[in-house]
Design a protein around this nucleic acid. Structure first.
Length: 470
RNA sequence: GGUCCCUUCGUCUAGUGGCCUAGGACGCUGCCCUUUCACGGCGGAAACACGGGUUCGAGUCCCGUAGGGAUCACCA
């Protein structure tokens, strides 16, 4: 960065009408990364100009989603609604400059004209009152305020992702900037707020690309510098269709509940639409170092759970067992319907490195960890039950063999089982399979001898005893 | 329908005119390892939407076609 360049300021401006969905999360991530990359600041602004649809619950959901993802913002989250007075004064200024005008058309009238324009394949410009003075009667009626768009020439935006995009000014509609109830619309609010907050780079979904041209006219009318734009493609569902609340869009809280790690989520979202050569596993530190708008893809990407799973599995394996346990504790205790004892806790801690090898999401770990709890209520799967038919006496014999073990270590346990098999002229597998079924009751697990060791002699013998009459 | 955008394996992508016999990752799959399930190791199948140009040479540039997407609110 050149020293004379202004400090980078980005922002994430969600509307509080629902949860923080996956597309918004990625937008937030890119803004955050870009700001951190350039030593700038990243702001959070709640776009609540639509009071009727904004809720406090949604604001909470957005904030907790951001925190879960590990995206911290500078300063306090700003409410757009709080700027209402400022926005009205900007409107006054626009009016005084002749860059905006009062429109007395009713919603019904406007809708009819719009429908008609569309039918004729024409652009609806909303200019019913652009060059018209109200009579005394009309002047007392409620009015909204529309911006007066230029009709000649064209506007080009040098988008950092999409490239240079040009639009004829004649296709721009005189949009409403102040509603007839005196409240500002989003179109006015974003511009003024971005300007007031000193936002230098506007990184947002490309559903806003068309808006950029309209908003640019407000900047021009106010004689403000237009920020640098970067419109990133949207995220689609696995079927290629747009992700919407009705169609597969989930809040980040839902991903948290499914057992994904924030680190995996960040890596996945980062890579979905952005790349750094062939790199796949990218830590947040590296991402901050490498992130740039020039490497953002231009086409929409589909969401793929398989890839997220594999990334999650990767990050799970990187974690320290002591840090994983707290993440699964509650779920596990709900499953076994009792508090975890210290013995169980220790067994799980020892088993975690191997459990994590075959887990993709947190619930997989909960399920596997259950094997290390002393609960005797563990159900026996059909497959395991089949494996145990007629093997009762052998299980009992194995139990007797293991009861004789004085030093409960995996080496000794394994030696005991091997000599047991040898003495009876059985293959290892013939002994191990039923023994495994008796110990795990069919639940997937890793190395059986290691499991036996961690379980402890008492628990192991108890489980074998339970199945000795099969 | 108008306007704007996009188009490399099933998916995410590398690729910025010759290094491409198109690379990586996930998924799928063969073999090996193995007491189960996994992990892992070594392989495999799998893509430049189509048609025209420009050029000595095109996945890379231009045009067209097709397909996909976004947007067209007193929502954001």
């Amino acid at each position: 960065m050149q020293s004379h360049m202004p400090k980078v300021v980005t922002r994430f401006a969600p509307s509080p009408t629902g949860f923080l969905h996956i597309g918004g999360a990625r937008t937030a991530l890119y803004n955050w990364l870009f700001a951190r990359r350039h030593g700038g600041s990243f702001l959070l602004r709640i776009e609540d100009t639509d009071r009727a649809r904004s809720t406090d619950a949604a604001i909470d959901a957005i904030i907790s989603g951001m925190k879960w993802l590990g995206l911290d913002w500078d300063g306090d989250a700003v409410s757009q609604f709080d700027q209402a007075a400022r926005l009205r004064s900007v409107t006054e200024e626009l009016l005084a400059k002749g860059a905006a005008y009062k429109c007395y058309a009713t919603s019904e009238e406007t809708a009819a004209l719009r429908a008609q324009a569309r039918e004729n394949g024409a652009v609806f410009l909303g200019d019913m009152w652009r060059d018209r003075e109200p009579d005394a009667d009309t002047a007392s009626q409620p009015y909204s305020i529309r911006i007066k768009m230029p009709r000649e020439g064209k506007t080009t935006i040098d988008d950092q992702v999409q490239g240079a995009v040009t639009v004829q000014n004649g296709t721009l509609d005189d949009m409403i900037i102040l509603r007839s109830d005196g409240t500002p619309t989003y179109m006015l609010a974003v511009v003024v707020d971005d300007y007031d907050m000193g936002v230098t780079h506007v990184i947002r979904g490309d559903d806003h690309l068309n808006n950029a041209f309209r908003q640019a006219q407000i900047y021009n009318a106010m004689n403000w510098d237009i920020p640098i734009y970067a419109h990133i493609p949207l995220i689609h569902g696995a079927d290629g269709k747009k992700l919407s609340k009705r169609h597969g869009a989930l809040g980040v809280d839902a991903y948290a509940e499914m057992g994904f790690l924030p680190a995996a989520m960040r890596n996945y979202l980062l890579r979905l639409g952005w790349s750094h050569g062939d790199d796949e596993i990218i830590t947040t530190e590296q991402a901050i170092e490498w992130f740039g708008l020039e490497n953002v893809g231009r086409g929409p990407a589909r969401f793929d759970f398989d890839k997220l799973d594999s990334l999650n599995a990767h990050y799970l394996r990187q974690m320290n067992p002591a840090n994983i346990l707290p993440l699964i504790e509650n779920e596990l205790e709900n499953t076994i319907e009792t508090k975890l004892s210290d013995t169980e806790r220790n067994r799980i801690l020892r088993a975690l490195p191997s459990i994590v090898e075959r887990a993709k999401r947190l619930p997989d770990i909960v399920e596997a960890a259950r094997l290390y709890c002393s609960a005797t209520s563990m159900p026996v799967t059909e497959k395991a039950a089949g494996m145990l038919i007629g093997k009762g006496s052998m299980i009992q014999a194995v139990a007797i063999e293991l009861e004789a073990v004085t030093t409960w270590s995996s080496e000794v346990i394994k030696a005991a089982i091997m000599s047991f098999a040898q003495a009876r002229d059985l293959k290892m597998g013939e002994v191990m399979q039923p023994t495994r079924a008796a110990i795990t009751r069919g639940a997937p697990s890793g190395d059986l001898v290691d499991l036996l060791e961690i379980l402890g002699q008492k628990e192991a013998l108890s489980r074998l005893g339970d199945q000795a009459d099969a």
